[in-house]
Amino acid sequence: MSGNRAAARRKQDVFRWVTIGVCLLFFALPLYGMLEFTTRGPGGTRSAQTWATLLDFGKVSAEYPALKEGFLASVGLAVLTVLIMLVLLVPTMTWVRLRLPGLSRTVEFLCLLPLTVPAIVLVVGLTPVYAWVTYLLGESTLWLSLAYVILVLPYAYRSLDAGLRAIDVKTLAEASRSLGAGWGTVMMRVILPNLRTAVLSASFLSVALVLGEFTIANLFSRKNLQVAMYELGKSDAQISIAVGLAALVFGFLVLFAMSFVGGPRSATAAAPRLRRTRKESP
């Protein structure tokens, strides 16, 4: 007996595979384009030369000093941005929950405000501020992280807010205070360990954003990874594209791995709601 349900399910299966297939094809074309381009050898042959160069770190830094410089700058920026973001947000958000709930709307507003201020606009407004930063702290590319913290603020805020929502900060703090812990101990030994996943996902989002940032660095004439790739693209496109593809694959692998580790509730994976046919649990 084939039945109405089975037929509907088959139709749905076909629809799913066709739709996902077409979309994945569209997504795959430019990626394949990158791969194809980076493996072009002289006279229409295939060659893995570009990738061999890229894997040889000594050679890359010797032949493409700008790329090395940009890469190191971006890594430094990512670390610094994450540190500042955490130092700034975690104590503030915890404290607001514990003692100053009246300020929660203000903090939320400030944290989400950058969503309405595009990076390009931020550059315009930051120009005078950065004149002072350069005057006081020097010209180092690393100070871009001060602006990057603002860029990552909304995403980091949302992750941390979700994390704080999931634990009862107040009860945890009161319980540990009643056991004789000071505020420092409460923060380091009680709150932070419980926020581990949220801190991790906020940090990961920040790193991803910083590594992909181009607008601010370019317009302030600083050299990070993206700017280096952009400039290199004019002279040696192959190595530049190879770096871009490598970064993309790396990002995908990290996200894909996280979707298994963090369970169904992690960064992009969906909430565990049941869809379609509900079966009796065996």
Binding site: M1, S2, G3, N4, R5, A6, E280
Partner: peptide, 14 residues
């Protein structure tokens, strides 16, 4: 539940 859903037509019996 399967029995009820078969009666409703939400599941097909084999």
């Amino acid at each position: 539940t399967t029995a009820l859903r078969c009666l409703a037509g939400l599941e097909d019996p084999d």
